[in-house]
């Protein structure tokens, strides 16, 4: 009886929660269409795409300086791509190694997982200290990159570990029994079958790296990545151009998500078969 009342009440509450999650972003999106003379708040003095043009450098130079997103966007994308490749490769081979039993597996597991637990500002600080001592220059493609991998590799590893846990080993054994070497078996059987997992690991790594800034803050040297550029505006007055940027970068992320969803759909369709074989067990 109570449940009958409770369910609609919780439903309304849940809707309110979703509004709480999305509210600020919706307000931000609305304010990004503020007119040239308006500030980063209501009222909207006139609807326009001025701040989008301002962001893309299509307005005459004025009082408000342009966000330096061009170069930093390129750096962030490159960094995210590098991180994705390395952490996915590390994730796949480490998870593959974990399929055999070995004594230190517990310690190694926690060592890897620690990478996603340790606050970025701490490893960032540590890396900065280390490079100071060794006299190495810090750069986004060097010191920041290795820290990004420290952060995203555990995610890729966990995804692959979950995939291998559900993996039917007999398919690989079948390949071996046909005279196919372990390396070829991995290439021709294992990899095609774990590909959806690899895609997920890549998506995780890319989005985490693309948005990462606490690890980058102390380690990227003079050249800023995109999140650092945004972070730079925290200490100064903000203008609606940053709102416009927020909308654009969100749209970009959704495009990425859509591409992933389409790739995933294709991969899952071709590997669906798995279910059919499990029935036989």
């Amino acid at each position: 009886m109570e449940a009958r009342v409770l369910k609609p009440v919780l439903g309304v509450y849940c809707a309110a929660f979703i509004l709480f999650l999305y509210g600020p972003m919706i307000i931000l999106a609305i304010l990004s269409f503020q007119g040239p003379g308006g500030g980063p708040q209501f009222p909207i003095i006139e609807w326009s795409t001025y701040w989008y043009q301002h962001l893309l450098g299509m307005t005459p130079p004025g009082r408000i300086s342009r966000l330096p997103i061009g170069d930093s966007l390129l750096r962030s994308l490159t960094l995210a791509l590098m991180t994705t490749v390395v952490s996915t490769v590390l994730g796949v081979i480490t998870a593959q190694g974990f399929r055999a039993r070995f004594k230190a597996s517990g310690v190694v597991f926690y060592l890897v997982i620690l990478g996603m637990i340790v606050p970025g500002v701490l490893v960032g600080l540590g890396m900065a200290l280390l490079t100071n001592m060794l006299g190495i220059d810090r750069s986004w493609w060097g010191t920041a990159f290795v820290l990004h991998v420290v952060y995203t590799f555990p995610f890729a590893f966990l995804v692959m570990l979950a995939i291998f846990n559900r993996f039917d080993r007999s398919v690989e054994e079948a390949s071996l029994s046909l005279g196919v070497s372990p390396v070829q078996t991995f290439r021709r059987v294992t990899f095609p079958m774990i590909f959806p997992g690899v895609l997920s690991a890549m998506l995780f790594s890319f989005t985490l790296s693309y948005d990462e800034f606490s690890r980058t803050l102390f380690t990227s040297g003079r050249q800023l990545t995109l999140p650092l550029t945004i972070y730079g505006t925290f200490s100064v007055e903000i203008y609606p151009n940053i709102f416009a940027f927020g909308v654009l970068t969100t749209l970009f992320s959704f495009t990425l998500l859509l591409i992933y969803a389409l790739l995933m759909l294709r991969a899952v369709r071709s590997a669906q078969s798995f279910k059919g074989q499990e029935e036989a067990e």
Binding site: S170, P182, A271, E281
Partner: peptide, 20 residues
Amino acid sequence: VAPHRRGIGFVFQNFALFPH
């Protein structure tokens, strides 16, 4: 000897076909 060098065929109970 590694399984792929034994020259022995194996038919699995669950068939273990290559699903892709």
